[in-house]
């Protein structure tokens, strides 16, 4: 795992140049906004074929989503017969698929469950792991080092390895409910989050904290008033990576909540696959549209942060 350590990227958007860059970090990943300025540059004529190629590719990338949208308005029969035809007089069923599907899988309940679990898990992960990472960096003891290595190690362990025992432990401890699962997510998210926070905090100069302590701040106030604001860029990255993961996660909530009536969005979608593998594709299309809309809105609203977060978080194993 030592190999990964040298790759801690630097996200430094507050213009605090150099100061917080970890010293051992030799390869900087520049999170460039350069592309933004390029838009205005004039295109050369030899680049026009490439431009056309890109447009074609963009259409190919968007097509699946448009197909889903189109088919969500078609009746069941027409979907399997002619999936690529536009809905016409016969096949058009309006919003029937939406109302029917939403009722069948309890879409809005599932949506709220997903929002609840994602928001609180991400918040808990940010607060707890950043505190833990600060402790690991500032208290140089064997157990801090051990904890750090275990966190890094946990990133390469596939979920199936711990799946069965974890499910049993969680149900013995009564963590198999909407609140308990948040705590389980803290455990699974800890590896990457601690790893990223430690990488950043190592570059934060000790002097600032010492000054705060001398002025009479206890460790708790020092952390929340002085250190935490500095961690903001990394916190955003960690939040985005974890939010994407938890929102889309299927297996963990299925194992912990499957026995109860509580469903997250991915579980609700999977619920449309019937017992014998039969799938109501018309309802499915409508539910997929409904579940994609919030993601698209979220993406368009925080696109800048998401793309920065992806580049910065590319260390994840």
């Amino acid at each position: 795992m030592a190999e990964i350590k040298t790759q801690v990227p630097v996200v430094d958007e507050n213009g605090v140049k150099g100061q917080f860059i970890p010293k051992r970090d030799t390869k900087k990943v520049i999170i460039a906004d350069e592309a933004d300025t390029k838009v205005k540059t004039k295109m050369e004529s030899k680049d026009i074929p490439f431009f056309i190629l890109l447009i074609v590719l963009a259409c190919v990338f968007i097509a699946p989503i448009l197909l889903v949208l189109m088919n969500s308005f078609k009746g069941k029969l027409f979907l399997s017969n002619a999936p690529f035809a536009f809905p016409d007089g016969d096949s058009f069923v309006g919003f029937d698929n939406y109302t029917e599907g939403a009722e069948k899988i309890g879409f809005f309940g599932a949506f709220l469950t997903s929002v609840f679990i994602t928001v609180f898990s991400v918040a808990l992960i940010i607060v707890c792991t950043s505190m833990c990472a600060w402790f690991i960096v500032r208290v140089k003891k064997w157990y801090s080092q051990l904890l750090y290595l275990l966190c890094a190690f946990s990133m390469i362990v596939p979920f199936q390895m711990v799946m069965y025992p974890m499910t049993q432990v969680a149900s013995n401890l009564k963590l198999n409910n909407m609140v308990g699962i948040i705590f389980v997510y803290l455990g699974f998210g800890a590896g990457l989050a601690v790893f990223m926070f430690v990488g950043f905090i190592k570059g934060v100069p000790l002097e600032i904290e010492e000054a705060a302590m001398i002025d009479g701040c206890g460790p708790v106030r020092t952390f929340f008033l002085v250190v935490f604001p500095i961690l903001k860029p990394t916190a955003i990255t960690v939040a985005i990576l974890n939010a994407m993961w938890i929102w889309n996660d299927y297996l963990l909530p299925y194992l912990l909540l499957g026995a109860s009536e509580t469903r997250t969005l991915p579980m609700a979608i999977q619920y449309l696959r019937g017992g014998y593998g039969s799938i109501d594709m018309a309802n499915m299309m409508a539910m997929i549209v409904l579940s994609i809309i919030p993601i698209v809105i979220f993406y368009l609203a925080c696109q800048k942060y998401i793309i920065k977060g992806i580049v910065a978080g590319a260390v994840k194993g």
Partner: peptide, 25 residues
Amino acid sequence: AIKRWFPLFVLPTVVAFIISFIAPF
């Protein structure tokens, strides 16, 4: 000074980490 705050800073993460990862592993 920081070490004295071990239960607040480290314990939540460590307990969750042990329950959902270390022990099952």
